[in-house]
Design a protein around this nucleic acid. Structure first.
Length: 154
DNA sequence: GCCAACGTTGGC
DNA sequence: GCCAACGTTGGC
């Protein structure tokens, strides 16, 4: 079953243009250290799932493009790297704690900003728009996906 | 830089 | 298991 997601990234770290410059326009989604977000990747994401590529913590937060899951969850390489800020001493290759999927950018879109998303009555229930939302990976309702892709990004 | 909101940690 | 303290997120 194809699911729909919104995945946040900080463009100062890995933005959509960075991913477009990578081989196959694909990036491993390293660095998730929240159990709920990890569980979404580990338990629910499958190849072919659709993704809103979202820029957060930046001058223009919003949806920057469309992407898809191209590889199922596997151990996040950064958890084993002592030089990484994402190093986790409690994790080991035998018993890894953190995983990531691979994500391929399908299309860069116009920057669909937060204010414009908030202005849509059809999107009032979107997880990303709820007060205090901090989760970096959230499920997107199929109707919300359709509305955004067909009405706002056409 | 501020700060509200939320997640995690650790003493008890 | 509770919950206060602390750390992080992320829009503004």
């Amino acid at each position: 079953m194809t699911r729909y997601w919104l995945m946040k990234t900080e463009p100062s770290v890995v933005g959509i243009d960075d991913v477009l410059a990578m081989p196959n326009q694909t990036v491993d989604w390293w660095g998730v250290r929240n159990y709920q977000a990890r569980n979404f990747m580990r338990d629910q994401m499958s190849v072919g799932d659709k993704v809103f590529f979202y820029h957060s913590n930046c001058a223009e937060p919003g949806i920057a493009g469309l992407a898809e899951v191209v590889k199922k969850a596997y151990p996040d390489r950064t958890q084993f790297d002592p030089a990484s800020k994402y190093f986790d001493p409690k994790s080991s290759p035998e018993n890894p704690r953190w995983v990531n999927v691979d994500v391929r950018v399908v299309k860069k879109t116009r920057l669909l900003g937060l204010a414009e998303l908030r202005a849509q009555p059809e999107l009032v229930h979107m997880r990303i728009l709820q007060r205090g939302n901090r989760l970096s990976i959230t499920p997107v309702d199929p109707a919300e996906w359709k509305f955004i892709v067909e009405r706002l990004l056409k």
